[in-house]
């Protein structure tokens, strides 16, 4: 971090792993959201997680394919998972949130694969 309230977003935040309060994986910082304050100075408002924002950010042929595929497969209009900046606890080798991931919207692919495939296989509820 550069100072207490400033950081190099590209170097220190983008592509970092996001973990919830209990250390469970939430996703990567695929992109970030800025708003402008009254003086026109941008400030960070949220972390964005999802293959479509990831595809947009990396751009190019592959990025467009990833973004378009994600949009095409989307069953509702929810968009990427948005994590407000207030929920961030700490930023070290990962971003740790102050809440459990169960309180955040579940990624659609995870939901779909669980309901249609994984949860139907016996023993899916047991850890080893």
């Amino acid at each position: 971090m550069i100072g207490d309230d400033r950081m190099d977003v590209g170097y220190e935040l983008l592509d970092l792993q996001i973990l919830d309060r209990d250390g469970m994986e939430v996703g990567k910082v695929d992109d970030v959201e800025f708003h402008l304050d009254e003086d026109g100075v941008p400030y960070l408002t949220a972390l964005l997680v999802g293959p479509d924002v990831f595809g947009h950010r990396i751009g190019g042929w592959l990025g467009r394919v990833i973004a378009a595929t994600t949009r095409r497969l989307r069953t509702n209009r929810s968009g990427p998972v948005r994590i407000p900046y207030d929920l961030i606890g700490s930023v070290r080798s990962a971003v740790t949130l102050t809440v459990s991931r169960d309180l955040l919207p579940e990624p659609e692919l995870e939901h779909w694969l669980r309901e249609h495939l994984i949860a139907r296989i016996p023993g899916s509820g047991h850890a080893q």
Binding site: I18, M24, E25, G27, K28, E110, R114, G123, S124, G125
Partner: peptide, 11 residues
């Protein structure tokens, strides 16, 4: 950045 590993239930 997905959840992974053997300590988590598959679902």
């Amino acid at each position: 950045g997905w959840a992974w590993g053997k300590l988590v239930p598959p679902r």
